[in-house]
Design a protein around this nucleic acid. Structure first.
Length: 327
DNA sequence: CGCGAAATAT
DNA sequence: CATATTTCGC
């Protein structure tokens, strides 16, 4: 309990190389095995042809996530991620507004709902932090994140929410949250849970401080996390199967973010409250979580991200598993 | 053309 | 109902 704590933050923003320097931020996404486990069409995952094999999740592929070429900003070509049903898939959530069945996804495929998982948001926050509020514009953030499939729209939208969240928090942050969110407890409204999962750099609440420096923030990025930024496809039930398989292998605590999408699909409580059935309890928090996760990555090295929130928050949520705030 | 916020869809 | 997507305005 020394100033060390605040110091790390101070130096954090102190040794900030120009944004140009930290441009090469690349995080591919989804570890191959994981992707396969979830039947997620990985950017480079071959057609696997594994239409539906939840019972035998044989993942022997050692495909390393190669530096996926960040698609040019002006390249609206969804080259991956939203692969149409991989064969025997029911498109239960396919057309809701169009009203056309059996449409050919040709090229203009509607991008499925992007699921902003805490980790993905973490990256977002990091990118913004490194860029600085001033440079934190959708385009730059998007480029910095280098998340395949992520488009400016996505970032812009999220950025918007994020700003609102920051603003909201400023008004309520009198006692230094220190931990940023989790530790503070109570800084999370219903809409804030996602943001609460990610430590908010002090500068965000202190535009003046950042402005005083006049230089963008940047940092030697913390260890990244390979997080499957999976989109909402028609994998609903598949997801469950895949999850089960994954869990069978090693407790994969993939926060799939089963958001309210269930509203009209799975169990959709009329109240508005929901309860994720299967996965919600599938994760007893052992200390080996990370190890297991690491193993998952296989070839990928260096995973440690929840660690931050975990110890920073003090000792509340073990993992950044989304809202556990159910009864 | 890009960012910012609002409106709409899911 | 919340969240993400899309649209509108600057």
């Amino acid at each position: 309990m020394r100033e060390e704590d605040s110091n790390w933050f101070a130096r954090w923003e102190d040794e900030l190389p120009p944004p140009e320097e930290l441009m090469p931020l690349s995080q591919t996404l989804i570890t191959p095995d994981l992707a396969i486990a979830f039947d997620i069409p990985s950017p480079h995952t071959p057609t696997a042809a594994a239409t539906a094999t939840p019972t035998t999740p044989n993942h022997h592929l050692h495909h390393h996530q190669q530096p996926q070429q960040p698609q040019p900003p002006s390249n609206p070509s969804p080259s991956h991620q939203q692969q149409p049903s991989s064969g025997g898939d029911f498109a239960d959530s396919g057309d809701l507004g169009s009203g056309a069945a059996g449409e050919e996804p040709a090229r203009t495929l509607k991008r499925p709902r992007l699921v902003w998982t805490p980790q993905l948001h973490k990256r977002f926050v990091d990118a913004v932090a490194h860029l600085g509020i001033k440079n934190a514009v959708p385009k730059t953030i998007m480029q910095l994140m280098s998340v395949d499939g992520l488009t400016r729209e996505n970032v812009a939208s999220h950025l918007q929410k994020y700003r609102l969240y920051l603003k909201r928090m400023q008004g309520l942050s009198a006692a230094g949250p220190g931990g940023g969110g989790a530790g503070g407890g109570g800084s999370d409204a219903a809409t804030d849970h996602l943001f609460a999962s990610s430590p908010v750099p002090a500068h965000f609440l202190h535009p003046a401080a950042a402005a005083a420096g006049g230089r963008p923030n940047s940092e030697h990025f913390l260890p990244f996390v390979s997080v499957p930024a999976m989109h909402h496809q028609q994998h609903h039930h598949q997801m469950a199967a895949a999850a089960a398989g994954a869990a069978a292998m090693q407790h994969v605590q993939l926060q799939q973010q089963f958001h309210r999408q269930a509203s009209g699909h799975f169990g959709s409580p009329p109240n508005g409250h929901f309860e994720h059935a299967f996965m919600s309890r599938q994760q007893p928090p052992p200390q080996n979580q990370q190890q297991q996760f690491n193993r998952m990555g296989g070839g990928v090295a260096g995973y440690a991200e929840d660690m931050e929130s975990a110890n920073a928050s003090g000792a509340r949520k073990v993992l950044t598993l989304f809202p556990t705030g159910d009864d």
